[in-house]
Design a binder for these strands. Structure first.
Lengths: 234, 234
DNA sequence: GTAGCAGAACTGTAGAACAGTTGGACTGTA
DNA sequence: TACAGTCCAACTGTTCTACAGTTCTGCTAC
């Protein structure tokens, strides 16, 4: 049956638009706070307004946009408090997965994920490293072998990537490569030790450090707005 | 400012319909697998088909319905495997919240939640007890003080309630009152001991037990379909 | 500079229309 | 009886048009 692997694009127009919008937001093509105008988007894409509305409703799931009655959708403009909330949620889910999953089974894939990250970092491939970083954490969550936990985490990561997209516009990079490598190695070591409590502790430390780095970058970028003028607090 | 607490219903028609549908599903008015027909629903409610479509997209977030291209939405018909997945996700999130939250702060509200459950159980108020049971667990997650974790959990609980709605149609009750009281008391005790590891262990035990009970009820109801004929596996 | 107002720009919703898909009934054939 | 083919009704996916209600913006008068 492997020969009949025909892939048909069974996604509706609205779903494709939702995906496209998500990519645009994560790439930073749409800046935070920017409104998503139904009519203009519809005519730009050559689709009807209803279809765009549906796409927006689909996109709402991702947490990348916010919706206000009679005011429509706009790209989320996340505050400092929300970044903290995101990190908390990430940590909690990672810990939860660690506790319900099997330490023995995660070690090999986690080592693999680290190697990819290490490789990308040493080659200076920022985007690739960033993706590898996210994959590393996704691997940890995957050890829970729970699809609902996976998707809850994915949703949060999505939102997190929105912040990264904003930061990378002003910062250029998310942190120092050496530091990233060292932090992830600590986590890997803890998991390879096989002790759940060590792993949990390592995750907490790593999350705390990267949260600090992220918040510091956020503060810097708030002080020195580069490309887009900030209209954070009206 | 407390005097001007005027609540205006700023929800759009589609959101209200989505809420109404959610309630209907959770009440069991719509049985699992039942399709949600756009046109008939639209004319029943006196709204346009577009509005219903939007409501369905909104409802999709909750995980209560499933959507298939060209086939529309239907009430989720959860399998045994999905129940297991749900319990896993619940446990992982509860554990995560326990680990990142403060044990000291949760003790009072958790005791309060238990008392409510205890009260409802002793009065034989099934629905109330069920709600108190869910509240008990929500209280644990709330100790993480993380809104994204809260909403991830709420989403999962929503889906879980769908199962309960199905079971309560065939079973009448979700488990034995004494057992429920004892299980929750064990959890409460562990939290009141102040030891995180004890709390985590107690959560694991409780989840395991209620999962067994739930799956057993599921098996019974599969064998003896009461009201609605089951069309689980074609 | 601020309150008030008019008009533009949008959103929320309705309703009709039509192509494309699905599923079921019916039919003919082996 | 089993099965392939055809046809049709029921739906979904999407578009277009229309219009009321809301929000925003810029102007005007005080």
């Amino acid at each position: 049956m492997a020969s009949t692997r025909i892939q048909i694009d069974q996604r509706s127009t609205s779903e494709q638009i939702a995906n496209g919008l998500r990519d645009m937001i994560l790439r930073g093509d749409l800046s935070p706070g920017e409104p998503i105008r139904e009519s203009s988007l519809a005519s730009d894409l050559g689709v009807s307004r209803n279809t765009v509305r549906e796409a927006v409703r689909i996109l709402e799931r991702t947490g990348l946009i916010s919706y206000e009655m009679n005011r429509g959708a706009s790209v989320r403009n996340p505050s400092r408090a929300e970044v903290e909330d995101l990190f908390k949620a990430r940590l909690a889910i990672e810990i939860g997965a660690t506790q319900i999953g099997s330490m023995a089974e995660v070690q090999a894939p986690l080592r693999q994920a680290f190697d990819k990250l290490d490789d990308a970092l040493s080659r200076g491939a920022i985007d690739e490293a960033l993706q590898a970083d996210l994959d590393f954490h996704t691997t940890i969550v995957a050890m829970g072998k729970c699809s609902r936990l996976d998707s809850a985490y994915r949703r949060i990561l999505n939102e997190f990537q929105l912040h990264l997209a904003i930061l990378s516009k002003t910062e250029g990079e998310y942190a120092k490569p050496d530091q990233i490598r060292a932090e992830h190695l600590d986590v890997l070591d803890a998991f390879e030790s096989g002790d759940v409590n060590d792993a949990v502790a390592a995750l907490a430390v790593h999350t705390d450090l990267s949260q600090r780095a992220c918040l510091a970058a956020l503060d810097r970028s708030a002080k020195a707005p580069s490309t887009a003028p900030d209209r954070l607090d009206g």
